[in-house]
Amino acid sequence: MATDDRPSVAKADTEDAVDAVDAAETTASGEDAVQASDTAASGDATTAGTGAPEFMVRAENVHKNFGRLEVLKGIDLTVRPGEVMCVIGPSGSGKSTFLRCINHLEKLNGGRLWVNGHLVGYRQKGDRLYEMREREVAAQRRDIGMVFQRFNLFPHMTALGNVMEAPVQVKGLPKARVRERAVALLERVGLADKMDAYPGQLSGGQQQRVAIARALAMEPALMLFDEPTSALDPELVGEVLEVMKQLALDGMTMIVVTHEIGFAREVGDSLVFMDGGVVVEQGRPRDVIENPQHPRTQDFLSKVL
């Protein structure tokens, strides 16, 4: 259940990585270097033997700090395709930050992260890391859907407009086809009758379901949920969890940061308890919830259950 059996990364490696990133940042025209590595780069993650496609997400000693505040102090995790991983833990434990690192909304300060076999945000050539350009990071994010605590729907677009926005604007797909798919997605989340409603006219639960449909419209390989029900009235939590459960049954790979222990037990394939920027305990949800080993886990679960 503890994470000690995972391969630890040599400290020197991490520091190299940080240096390389620093170098790329300080060179205003780091483009040259990045372009030079274009040819050799794409296969590196897999050739290193670390990002084998058997894992949808693989985190290795991930560190993140905001200024002096260390938020993530070495996270090692793997998520297999089709797996639903739930992440629980007290506020400030770094769960959300870790989630945001996965689609590079936050830059890592150390360690490595692969999604679907590709290193996130950087290109590796030999021992050096090269920062990706904004455009390339954006391309990586297309395969990762994200659902936020505060929904973050675009308030000036209808529900349908929200779902259609990314496929039309990012993938450049024809509107008619996107519309068809968007309608189907809204039906799937049970909102066929709310297509023309603006987010302000929808309840929180409905908004969050639109947000899930919006993320699914890009046909992601991985879905990230950042406390998707924390901002909802208690009576609306169920409808969102139901949609997520359906999604899990359809085989979507999901990482869910949540306080819904019941959902974690019922739907999750694995459960991770984080505290103080590290993974304290992980395992099958039933085991962790019913028989927590670490005192911190026991303490946390006794308070929320």
């Binding site: 909304l105 994200m146 604007q169 990012v170 890009m218």
Partner: peptide
């Protein structure tokens, strides 16, 4: 504009210019 808006658009893979213009 709520920073969550650009964040959501970023997560969808939109470019900075598109986020500015569309969102």
């Amino acid at each position: 504009v709520d920073p969550g808006q650009s964040e959501a658009a970023t997560a969808l893979g939109m470019s900075r210019a598109k986020i500015m213009r569309r969102v």
